[in-house]
Design a protein around this nucleic acid. Structure first.
Lengths: 304, 304
DNA sequence: GCACCAGGGCAAGAGATACTTACGCTACTG
DNA sequence: CAGTAGCGTAAGTATCTCTTGCCCTGGTGC
């Protein structure tokens, strides 16, 4: 394989028409240039220069090889540039997964801030529930995962993952505004309940809160889509406990923070500890800055 | 500057997902691969692999660098291919100069044969008189020069030039068919003469032949274009002595070979002896094959 | 549970590369 | 005709790069 350095030397020699001058230009000895050219001639089988007693004469082949070599040298230059950009995080790719609610509430503002500072970076988005995302992290299919953790059912995150707590949401009781229902859990034992789908942490959380209040929740409707849940509540079909991010203020709905211990959900960003993606740190910063402040029921975390 | 070999190794490691396998594929030791990758990481400032106890995990940066490296490797591969073509003479450039008559009579058939065997080679054509062409050869602006040499005025070709005699032309006396003029020089002392322009070997040659025949030629018309000369002869405006290549059989003209010693012109191909253009030899062969055989007044030379 | 093995990192040594120094040769220059 | 500039070659040296040998880790088989 031809060596790029030899091509550079060749070009310098062709340009200057002299090994001695090329050597000076490149910081070599004339002898070094002579040897490099000899090696190049031997390797290519071309005669690149005609030697005369007092100088050299570049062959047509030398000119041609110089031109052809430009392509290689240009590609190498480009590569260097790209590498520099990759290393500094100016460019690059990062795969971000999040659970649906965060995908709507947190990710877009975070990315709009991120895109300001890293206009040429590529972010690939995935949606999924925490278990899937964590599995994807482990497989290396994801760089960062936005997941949640209910106070009542803490997760055993696998080893090797670094977690950054972004915010804590209160769990909020939603009632139709004129339903006449109490805001106190113990008084809602006869109410119809609306929860996330069976087996989810959200549903489990509601059930446990009710159990702690002394009754078994009668779950009538299940949906993982908080927009749907709110509509159901609004229509007077039941009450629900949702995390603050799942709640959007609405005239027809009364929202009340639950005061029970552990009645909260934490949103955190996970990544494999060894992940060295240069975009990782700036993205985490953007996520943190995207957490709304001064919003009811939402409590941002500082850097941890 | 990043080393192409490192890029190859990187790609092998990414492809196989293991330094050990990459090493086997490339004929290295696992340690060599490890060191190459370390060097690459140090040079780029990127983390290319996450090391685990029992294997490695290519980083996004590694994948990206591999893709980017393809450009460089492809350019290098192309270059190798081009070099091989240049070295074998499949491709390449050659500059051929010739005097006008040969440009018309010899070069086209030679090139059509040459193009058969070297379809991708580029031949650049120049026209000029022998002195200019020889100067261009010396300056390296020309690879091959087709020149002529009159028997009566041999040229002192500069040193360092190799000459290949292609053919010898008889000098031919042209008369209008019904002019009633003799074919013997001594009887043409009163005729009007047509020659090439003053100072040319052609004109000098005619003048000397006439002088040897005992008279001074009365030159009435001069043209370097043999087509014009023939028209003038045809119109009965005078007689001319032209080399065989400058003669095309014509009903209205009678052509007679001059029998004097030295009444001939030699056409030869010159090139600098050190010229190593791989196209040189095949082009000379084509030129030699393009010399007409069995044409009156024309005598091809064998290889000399 | 324990020996074994595969994969990778590290250190040291050997071999190859690449550069410098020194010298010889040739042709231009004053 | 000596001096000099330019290139080539040979020898020495420094640097780079690969191999060898050993350690560490974690998975596997008995």
């Amino acid at each position: 394989m031809l060596k790029p350095l030899h091509l550079l030397t060749l070009k310098a020699a062709v340009r200057s028409g002299s090994f001695a001058i090329a050597a000076r230009d490149l910081g070599y000895t004339a002898s070094a240039v002579s040897q490099q050219i000899s090696a190049l001639e031997k390797e290519t089988g071309l005669v690149l220069f005609e030697r005369e007693a007092h100088g050299i004469r570049p062959t047509a082949a030398a000119h041609r090889l110089g031109e052809l070599g430009d392509r290689v040298l240009a590609a190498l230059g480009d590569l260097d540039q790209h590498v520099r950009e990759l290393a500094t995080g100016v460019t690059g790719r990062l795969r971000l997964g999040s659970f649906p609610t965060a995908g709507v509430r947190l990710v877009p503002p975070a990315l709009s801030a991120f895109a300001e500072s890293h206009p040429r970076a590529q972010i690939q988005l995935e949606e999924g529930e925490p278990e899937e995302l964590v599995a994807a992290l482990g497989d290396g299919d994801l760089d960062v995962a936005l997941v949640y953790e209910y106070g009542l059912s803490p997760r055993p995150w696998p080893d090797g993952l670094t977690h950054h707590r972004l915010l804590t949401e209160d769990l909020v009781l939603l009632r139709a505004r004129d339903s006449g229902l109490s805001a106190q859990l113990p008084h809602l034992s006869r109410a119809r309940w609306i929860t996330s789908r069976e087996g989810t942490d959200g549903a489990r959380s509601t059930v446990r809160l009710c159990a702690a209040a002394g009754f078994e929740a009668a779950v009538a409707f299940r949906s993982n889509n908080y927009d749907v849940v709110r509509e159901l509540v609004s229509a007077g079909l039941g009450v629900a406990v949702v995390p603050a991010l799942g709640h959007a203020p609405k005239d027809s709905i009364e929202a009340t923070r639950l005061t029970q211990r552990s009645a909260h959900r934490t949103v955190l960003a996970l990544h494999r500890s060894e992940n060295s993606n240069p975009l990782l740190t700036p993205l985490l910063a953007s996520l943190r800055r995207a957490v709304p402040v001064d919003e009811p029921f939402l409590h941002p975390h500082g850097r941890d």
